[in-house]
Design a protein around this nucleic acid. Structure first.
Lengths: 188, 188
DNA sequence: GTCTATATCTCGATAGAC
DNA sequence: GTCTATCGAGATATAGAC
């Protein structure tokens, strides 16, 4: 990806998050990225293509980050905990990107992502949980239900921790406590 | 609210959910509602006013439904369970409306709702949880954290249960099981 | 690849008759 | 209150020079 492409994605992220897909004309994205309107459409044939490219870019970054943080040497509980904790750290350190993921998710653009790609995004998490069920460390629930319980707690906790009133220096303790509660709920 | 107003809100809901705020022109809303463009703007001065009125209308309906379902005679656990279960029933029976709430939540329109109104929406739930903490039935966690744990599980479970592949006749059993897990996590 | 200039279109909102 | 007709603004996307 060349530099101008990155600038366009960065500008698009900021503006989409601040003003929504609707409230953000391509002309403003180009202006904030410091490129011309024509250049934007050179890289992305349509506005929707840009919206989707931004989503895929962010998803790829999150996925790479989690892969780097969650190694394969630890116990299953530790790997699950790392996955939980680092998802939250990433979200809190990349709030615009995390918000964009959710904004995208509740928009008609989501329908443009193929089901296979969607499935691929949670595959690694599902495998981890499946391993836990088979090792009889986790309750024998449907693996998708376990995934729902874990990931919804990540999303909810993010809302709680990112509230302006919440003191940043207490984040880590709450995250640890929340994982302990979660683990108590899903462990066999 | 007069009949045409209801028709406009109904049409707006269907179209916003299907095509997003962006993809839904007021002209299409008016057409689907069977009224003229001018009539729509007679009831709602701007498109945004319509978007917000629809949100408040849906929120009011959900709130009224839950108040009717969760009486004051039951034990705290029962009231919490009823609140959890009926939130899910309502969401599953009113999927467009529930989706709209979330779509609105992840849009810049949310900023147009005053913090007092937002706070009012969760007040009754927070009171219930506070009562549980004081009666030493629930863990002595911050009440907002407890609320986060409960409500995020509602949202997550909704996604799980509303998936097209999920058999409708198994919904109730999963909801009961999920509440049991949740209760185990938050009870003292 | 990047720019300027612009075509084409559609949208939100208004005016005014009934 | 409801309609028809329409305006002006601003949107996406393209054309073509450099």
């Amino acid at each position: 990806m060349v530099e101008k492409e990155k600038q366009i994605l960065t500008a698009a992220l900021q503006l989409f998050v601040a003003y929504g897909f609707h409230g953000t004309p391509t002309s403003k994205i180009a202006a904030q990225a410091g490129v011309s309107n024509g250049t934007l459409f050179h890289y992305y044939k349509t506005k929707e293509e840009l919206v989707i490219a931004l989503y895929n870019d962010i998803k790829g970054e999150l996925s790479a980050y989690l892969s780097a943080q969650v190694g394969g040497q630890d116990s299953l509980e530790t790997r699950l905990k790392k996955s939980f904790i680092h998802s939250l750290y990433w979200a809190l350190d990349n709030q615009e990107k995390f918000y964009y993921i959710q904004q995208f998710h509740f928009s008609p653009h989501l329908a443009k992502i193929s089901p296979e790609v969607i499935a691929g995004q949670s595959r690694v998490h599902l495998q981890l949980l499946q391993e836990g069920i088979e090792a009889e460390l986790l309750k024998p629930l449907p693996v998708e239900l376990l995934f729902t319980l874990v990931s919804s707690q990540v999303y909810g906790l993010y809302q709680y921790l990112s509230a302006p009133a919440f003191p940043i220096d207490q984040r880590q303790a709450v995250i640890e406590e929340a994982f302990a509660l979660l683990w108590g709920m899903i462990k066999k």
